[in-house]
Design a protein around this nucleic acid. Structure first.
Lengths: 182, 182
DNA sequence: CAGAAAGAGTTCGGTGACCGAACTTTTACG
DNA sequence: CGTAAAAGTTCGGTCACCGAACTCTTTCTG
């Protein structure tokens, strides 16, 4: 299933992955989806991506089976995007790149911008996804994203997603209220 | 240090990472570097990337401190590129994306294209980088890349890198002979 | 030593992806 | 009924990427 921008001739699984998630903005969109962003306008406001590109990416990810597009539950008329099982499988990659960025391009000397805590016991998780408290491998749905000491406080003009992420939030649960989750 | 193609306004480590390794071809170049590819021509022949783009990426990665460019050891006059410590830190991300590509876009029903074995005991390693035999977290330098059942055999016209990767090879060691390693 | 070959990029014209702003359409609210 | 919001779509301009050819230096070969 070669996408328009393919990597021909590579007998390599990484090349296949890059055909699906290797274009500009794609991994940031998926990170937001893990954080609980669900609607077109939320992605657009948080990422400052051109709306045309965002529409293209959401359609591509939906077509690739990474995201699922459906009507908002609870009788709403708006569309929501959610990660599929296939999309959930990208969490280790998102986590690894985030950790690398934090380690090698830190915000300042204060510490990480965000930390990922095991929901069950509140202990931080390490780069390999294991809980430092209980040692278990923690799936993304059992994680909390919490602001770390390196995160600058959101300004008054911050978009709703940025504002919501100033407080701890459980991954994969909707970040902003919708019809289904007031 | 915003690169030309930056992701402004993101208080996010993933965005910082994508500024360094998010452009087209970059992660494939780094994967080859982990496999032991060292020279400009080897990258060019294996990846079929335009030479101008390859030159741009190698310069960018060198400038970002991910690769190190130097004269070939042993008196050669050619340039070689090798991963720095910072570059080595990208292995979990490369591994995670490779595993995802293998899981969701497999070559065929036969199994993985490549497997990563712990050099010390020959046991395969899991997606979290731990050895299934001894349980240790295995750094990339202690891994062997070995062809798996899903890897198509190289044709007679295969480039030297593809041909060399048809046999098991230890990561980070030069894949093709140079002055320093005949 | 002369000529050919190899290695490492650079140059260049053409194409397509990306950008940002404006526009359309549909549904909800007052 | 008029307005607002949400979800895209359209459009012209710019920039990254493509692929082929070219340059320049170093190394091999007769």
């Amino acid at each position: 299933m070669p996408l328009p921008r393919d990597y021909r001739g590579q007998s390599c699984s990484l090349a296949r992955a890059m055909e699906v998630v290797g274009e500009r903005w794609t991994l940031l969109i998926l990170r937001d989806a893990f954080y609980g962003v669900r609607r077109f306008g939320e992605f657009a406001a948080h990422l400052a991506v051109p709306r045309s590109v965002l529409a293209e990416r959401l359609a591509g990810l939906t077509g690739a089976g990474v995201l699922d597009r459906r009507r908002e539950p609870g009788g709403g008329r708006r569309e929501v995007y959610a990660l599929t099982e296939k999309g959930l499988g990208l969490w280790p990659a998102v986590r690894a790149l985030t950790d690398w960025g934090e380690a090698h391009h830190p915000a300042n000397g204060d510490g990480p911008r965000r930390v990922f805590l095991h929901h069950a016991d509140g202990a931080p998780t390490g780069p390999d996804g294991h809980c430092s408290g209980c040692g278990a491998a923690v799936p993304p749905g059992d994680l909390l994203v919490a602001p770390g000491p390196g995160l600058p406080p959101p300004g008054d003009d911050a978009d709703p997603v940025t504002a919501a992420l100033a407080r701890p939030h459980r991954l994969l649960t909707p970040l902003l209220p919708t019809r289904g989750t007031p």
